[in-house]
Nucleic acid binder design. Structure first.
Lengths: 221, 221, 221, 221
DNA sequence: TATGAATGAGATTTCATTCAT
DNA sequence: CATGAATGAAATCTCATTCAT
C-alpha cells in the first residue's frame, strides 16, 4: 500500500509548502497585510486549494506558531542536559534562545502572528489552543526556574510559573518592538543586543544574592 | 456672550463622549474588532457625525493614546520630586505606574491601540507622531535611569536610553498579555501582581551590587 | 424706508460674495472637486448660511453661468453695432469673444460648470433653465449668421440656428480641453491660439465663396 | 483540453457582459450617475464579482473608451486606403466617422466617459494613459491633414497637429451636446445632421482655396 | 439673519470563505 | 485533488442638505 503512503507524504509536502510561503510573506509584509489571496498567489495554488489543507487563515497562523515553538523546545531541551545547576540552566536557555531564534526569521513571524491574534476574542475555543504554543515554552522555563529555586542558585522568593509567563512575554515584547521598525532598519543584531541586555538584567534580578557576579553575564554563540 | 462658551463646552463634551465610547469598545472587543460604525452606533450618533469631531479613525486612537500618556507623565513627574536618589526615583516611577495606570482600564486600551498600529508601515509620517507618546514616557524613564547611574545607586554599565526602551516594551508586554485573556478573567489585580514581580526583578537587576537588598522591593499605594 | 433698501443691498452683496468665492474655487480646483463646505469655508460663512442665499449647489452654478453669459452678451452687442455686414459682424463677434472671455477666467469657470452638469438628467426642469444661458448666446450668434446669409457675405446654404448651436459647442470644447490641462500648464495664450485657428477655419467655411480671402482672418485686440 | 478554452471564453463573455451593462447604464444615466453598485445590480452580480474582472471603476471606463477607439481606427484605416489625395482622405475619414460612430451608441458613451475624467488631475500617471485613446485618433487625423497640406489639396497654412487636436475636440463637443438632451429627444439623426454640417464647414475652411467647391460636401453611407 | 450640529445615503474597495465543476 | 468563480459583509470616508437655536 505504498501508494497511500506516498499520497500522504505529498499532502504533507504541500502543507509545508503553504506554510513556508505564508511565513515568507509574513516576514516581508507583516501579518495584517497579507491575505489568503497573497498566500495562494505566492504558492501558485488557488485560494480554494489552500482551504483543502487548512480550515481557515487562523489555522495557518496557529500551525506556524506551533511548529516554531516545538522546534525551539527540542533544541533547548537538548542543550539543557549539560546544565549543572538552575542558574547555569537558565543561562543556557537564554543562550539557546539567542542562538536559535534570533538567527532565524521565525522569531519575527511568530511575534507578528501573536500580536495579530485579537486580544480576548469572543470564542474561547481556538484561543486556548493558541496559547498552548506559549504554554509549552512556558512550562520549560518554569521547570528551569524551579530547579534554580530548589538548588539555591536563584532567588528563592520567586514564583516559577508566574515568572516563566513574564519571561515569555518580555521576550516577545522585544522582538515585537524590533518588528515594528521598517524592514530595512530591522536587524538581528539589534535584537540580540536588546535581548542580551535584557536577559542580563533579568539574570541579576533572578539570581540568588549569593551568586557570583561574574556568572551573571551571557555569552551567546 | 456665554453662548459661545457653552457651545464650546458642549462640543468638548461630545468629543469626550466619543472618546469614552471608543475606549469602552476597545476595552470590550479589542481595537481591530471595532469600526467607525460601531463607535457611531454605540455613541448613538451617525458615522458622519463622528467624522465631524475626528478626522479619521487613526485620529481617535492617537488622541486616546496621547491623553493617557500625558496624564501619566504629569502624575509621575509630580511624585518624582520626592526622590532622593536614582534608585528611589525608579522605585517611585514604578509605584506611580502601578498606582496610576493599573487601576484604570486605560492601560488595556493604550496597549491595545499600540499593538494595533501596523508594524513597519511604509510612510513614516504618522507613525513617528504615534510613537511620540511612547517617546515621552521613554525619555522620563531614561532620565531617571541616568540619575541612578550617575549617583551610583544603579548598575553603572547600563545604557539608560536602551534600557528605558526595553522597560517600556516590557511593561506593555505584560499588559498586552493580560488583555488577551477573556474579558471575564482579566483582572487589574493580576496585572498588579505580575508587574510588581517584574519590576522587582528588574529593580534587582538594575540596582548597583552595593545596594541594600531591603530597598529592592516595591510597595504600591 | 431706506432700511429695507439697505438690507436688500447687503443681501445682494453677500450673494455676490458667495458667487465670487465659488468662481475662485472652481477656477482653482475644478467643479467636481469643490463642495459646499469648501465654498462656506472660503466665504467665511457656514454651510447653512449659503443655503439661505441659494437653494442648492446647482443653483449657485447656474447663476454663475447666467451672469457670465449675460455680461458677454452685453459686451458683444455693444461692439456689434459697428458691423457693416454679416461677415464683419461675425468677425467682430469672435474678436469680442477672444477679447472678452479669453482674457478672463470666467471662461474656464463656465466651461467647468457646463461639463459638470450631468448629461440628460432625469428631471428636465432645471436643465431647461440651464440651457437658457447658452440659448441667449446662441440667439445672438444666429442673428449675426442670418444677417450674413441675407446680405450674401456668408454661404447661403447654412442654417443659422443650427450653426449657431454648433459654434457655441465648438467654442466650449476648446476651452474645456484647455481646462483639462494641469492648472500650471493652462494658459490663456493657448486658448487664444486654438480659438483663433478654429475661428479662422470656421470663417473660411462659413464665408460665401465670393468673399475676399484677405478678410477671413481675425485680429483680436 | 477544450475545458480551459471554454473557461477562457466564458470569462471573456462575462467581461463583455459587464462592459455592456456599464455601457447601457452610461447611455441611460450618464457616467457620474452610475456606481459600481449599479453596474453590479444590473449585471446581476455582486460588487465583488465586478472587481474580479476589473481592477477599478476607472479600468472599466478606460476599457470601454479604448475598445471603441481602436475599433474606429481599424475601420477608418481600412477605408482610407482608397483615398487619392489629402482632401479626399479627410472626407473619407469624416464619412467613416459618420457611418461608424454615429450609428452606434458608443459615441455617447465615449464622450460621456471622456467628460467625466476629472480635469487637471494631480497625478499625471493614469491620465496620460487615458488620453492615449484620443491620441491614437488624433494621430490618424494629423496624418491625413498633413497629407493634404503636402499635396496642396488643403490650406497650406494649417498646423496638422493642432488642427487634429481641435477636430477631435469639436467632434466630441457635438456628441456631448446631444448627450445632454433628455434621452428621449436624443437622436442619432440629429447628430448626423449636426456633424455633417459641421464637417462641411470645416472642410471648406480647411480646403485649399483652389479646391473645387463641388468636392466640399459629404455623403455618408 | 446666521450657524453649529447632525445625518442619510452612498461611493469605492477588500477579504475570508463557499461551491459547482 | 484542484480550481475559477462568486459573494456577503464590512470598512473607511464624503457630501448635499436640514433643523433647532
Amino acid at each position: 500500500m505504498g501508494i497511500i503512503e506516498r499520497k500522504k507524504r505529498e499532502r504533507e509536502k504541500r502543507r509545508n509548502q503553504i506554510l513556508e510561503v505564508a511565513k515568507a510573506l509574513i516576514l516581508d509584509r507583516g501579518v495584517p497585510a497579507i491575505s489568503m489571496q497573497d498566500i495562494a498567489d505566492e504558492a501558485e495554488l488557488s485560494k480554494a486549494t489552500i482551504y483543502l489543507y487548512f480550515q481557515s487563515k487562523e489555522a495557518i497562523l496557529s500551525e506556524i506558531l506551533g511548529t516554531s515553538a516545538d522546534a525551539f523546545i527540542a533544541y533547548a531541551e537538548g542543550r539543557l542536559e549539560a546544565a549543572s545547576d538552575g542558574l547555569s540552566a537558565i543561562k543556557i536557555l537564554w543562550e539557546s534562545y539567542l542562538g536559535f531564534f534570533v538567527e532565524s526569521p521565525d522569531i519575527f513571524i511568530c511575534t507578528g502572528i501573536k500580536n495579530y491574534i485579537p486580544p480576548a476574542p469572543a470564542s474561547a475555543g481556538s484561543e486556548i489552543e493558541e496559547l498552548q504554543h506559549d504554554r509549552k515554552i512556558r512550562r520549560l522555563i518554569a521547570k528551569v526556574l524551579k530547579r534554580g529555586c530548589d538548588d539555591g542558585t536563584l532567588e528563592a522568593s520567586i514564583d516559577p510559573d508566574r515568572i516563566a509567563r513574564i519571561v515569555v512575554m518580555i521576550t516577545m515584547a522585544i522582538v515585537d518592538n524590533i518588528a515594528r521598525l521598517p524592514r530595512s532598519e530591522r536587524d538581528a543584531k539589534l535584537i540580540r543586543e536588546d535581548m542580551q541586555d535584557t536577559f542580563e538584567i533579568l539574570l541579576r534580578g533572578l539570581a540568588a544574592s549569593s551568586a557570583e557576579r561574574s556568572l551573571l553575564s551571557l555569552s551567546p554563540s
